[in-house]
Design a protein around this nucleic acid. Sequence first.
DNA 1: TTAAATCCCGCCTCC
DNA 2: CGGGATTTAA
Length: 962
Amino acid sequence: MTEPTPNPAQQQLIENTDGIYVVDAGAGTGKTFAITHRYAEIVDQPAVEPEDVLLVTFTRSAATEMKERIVDHSTYSLRELADGSIQTFHSHCFDILQEHGYRAPTHLGLDERITGSTRVVEDELVENELFREFIDQFRDTHPGYADVFRALSAPLELLDVVSELASKGVFPTTEGWYRDGETALDGDFDAFKSLFDDVNQPRNDGRKQSRLRSKLNRYGRNKTYLPEAPAKAELRGDGTKQVPARVTELVFDEDREGLKAFIHDVYIEYLDFALGRNYLTFGFLQLFAFVLLCEDDVLRERVAYDYVMVDEFQDTSEIQFKLALLLAGTDNICVVGDWKQSIYSFQYADVDNIREFEARLDRFTDDLDEERERIQFEVDEIERIELTENYRSTQTVLDFSEEALVVPATDRDDVDDSVLNDVVSLSSNATFDNTTIEGVHDPDEHEAVLSTIQDVVGNEEYAVEDEDGHQRTPTYGDIAILTRTRDFGRELLTVADEYDFPMAYDGGIELFRTDQAKLLLAWLRILEADADRGWAVVLEQAGYVLDEIDHILNTGDYPANIATFRDELDERAAVGAVARAVFDRYGFSGEYADVILHTIQSVHESSTLTRGDLIRFIERGIENGSTHDVFTSAGVDSVTVQTIHSAKGLEYPIVVLANMNSGKFPPNGGGSSVIQYSEPVGLRQRKQYATVAEHPHVYDNWRHDVVRHCLSRDNDEERRLLYVAITRAESHVLFTGGEDPNTFFEELPCPTREADPTVETVDRTATAQTQLPFSIVQPDGPTGHTPHTLMDSNVFANDGTETEAVEFRGRDFGSRIHDFAEAYALGEDVTPAIDDADDERHVKAFLDSLPGELHVEERAVLPLEVDDERVTISGIVDLVHETPTEIEIIDFKTDRTRRGQPEYRKQLSAYYHVLLECFPDKTVTTSLFYTAEGEREFIEPLSQDRLRDLVRSVSMREQERN
DNA sequence: TTAAATCCCGCCTCC
DNA sequence: CGGGATTTAA
């Protein structure tokens, strides 16, 4: 986006820095732009420094982006902001605890301390593992709770309860509950009654029974209650269309002391366990920071900020709202968000934080001021600002997105149209509006998606606008496929592979179901128990056929080289070292292996992990299909596949919303915690047995079987999800539906059509050179480049003036700093204003320090012979620096915190070998230059053999997919 | 014809 | 475990 001047609404937000503001910033309204300018405006006041201003973002990457953008607008440099307070709630809490948290646990009566070595467990799998360990030990040391445990089918769900309570600000102390925590657990009868009455209204003018009564038809099905439980007939009443009113009290009044005591003990002892093990979870970071700020008035006043801004406020939880208040030293509070994009309730986000901001602010302030005044300012004057000008989408897309908020999710869904009253309509500033919105269906939805894309790419009817405002036909890179589930995305990727479609998946993979993990598991089993099923996998991998494997297993006569490797492994004590050795042997060095190693390493650090533990850990990982984030790159011009959740905040010219299928969007039900906490009702216990007939346990919580029908969730969040997906689109929105498209697909007010049934394989040889940063392209492709032909075609001597070099840049590739470096290296005029920014200064100083010639934005293709097959690795680097004796490959990165070092290394290595061949008389080196730090890091290139291994492991992955 | 009961099917999103 | 489809009851 070019940097425009703020529009009036943005200007209002930027200029009004004092007082309480709630900003309704709809999708694409230049929210980041406005916030960063506002931040700059605040810190550019003489009396204000960055450390006086707290800017909370929701993700780390958002924080990084904010910082980068702020540098553009203010006199501060990235380094000066680095210590400032632009970060997530979690990292901010972490910082507070690091500095002042030593005694924080004592406020809950705990003796443990938070120290500089206390770690944060981020990996969910690791956290689960630790909790499991805790709960096993808890069970042993509390025989009194044996009955409760007997009824708990999945103890891990206790962790959910603890996390949810922590997110709502309900904490235990060694003596009882922190502050008024117990009130929340007991619930609010009046609130419950109103929910109960709502679902208990007779329908059709009294001719039809209430929803609740209807639901209770299932009461007791496949269950056996304790004798004192009421009979079904008693609950449902007779001769009336309603459940009798007295049932309200009947179900609410329950002696929950035992259950509360149980949860309390689990909760407080888990806190103690975590501290004892020297770790904190995300939730506990906030818990202890909150307690600390609540208890220590002097500290609170010291760490409080003059200005507080919270971005993505619709994603905040109750405790985060309160933390923001505690961290505000004045009433200069600004929250920015869009309730229509609140889709993280499963992460305890509470949409009412923004929708009912005023009421909640009052309530939370009163709450925090209960014992003594903690919030030292008035909260009665609240200003609302609405950003209504949209810089992303066409008006047609914007109008359509509102429809999503009221579209029925099921046939009988009675949608509350009144939400539209709360929608601040947006107006587009797009010059063109040739928007197409349509549904495409085909029995095979994967193919429907591919054929739709095929239809769109290069098609004038789906023209998109380029940066200069010109219309052009779309390319693959313009398209994002947004899905609700990761599974669908990965299935799609497999099908795309068959047609050689350029498609990149961005999200989680089932890490432990990969070949890498399976082989590691096999070796661990061999080491641990000489297990046949371990050997079978290893032997099969080594190329032995079934008969041979049988024979070897029977005789125990293992091939010498494998047996030797076994002995070598056996000598390694640490499981991490075993894993590394296994991956080295098989040449597994890709993203998957890296992430596996990293995960193992983090479990290892957090507990004393034996081989047996690791085996069980991987087995559980395989069972649960637990996922870890990876990014599979497929070149610059490729379609992106993402879940809607992960696409939030992004934008694409064309959005294909897939998998609106089988009548199941949304899917059924909500979570099914064994023990459920909910605001008005309090803590409830549910114990369920799938097959009571086989296991004649007694199900004693009949109350919950009534109550849960009063807590049914509506489909609003599903509609908001749809809204988020649509508003990602700049120009066109397409829906695909499979065999049995759901209600959303059918009810959305747009035309639908049949998909073109033929999908053609894509010829990607034409784009082979645009692979980034590392991948396999057509073997022996027609490009036929050798390093020498590249030399001949003058690629290395490219002075950057050829248009080819410029048009090659992808949408996100040319960041400010690259542009700067390029312009400077080419001796162009560089505007003086930019001299103030650290990054530019660093780059400039660096470039000045280099003697010899600079070549900007180079690319190369390295052909490799791998197993008699010729493959090509291609890479692009930002800069090549050449002197008579040396040639250096340099790539710019902003800082070291970014992920992807292994990828950079591959990319640089591919290039390294090309140059090595081209310039036999020169020394070739590879380095990364961190612009924010002004430092150059030399990178050891991978050997050609290592690259070959990489190619092999990637080929294996490809085969695995097919 | 309408309401109530029962049968049938598939099970997410992630800091 | 809920929603839609189907069957049964009135």
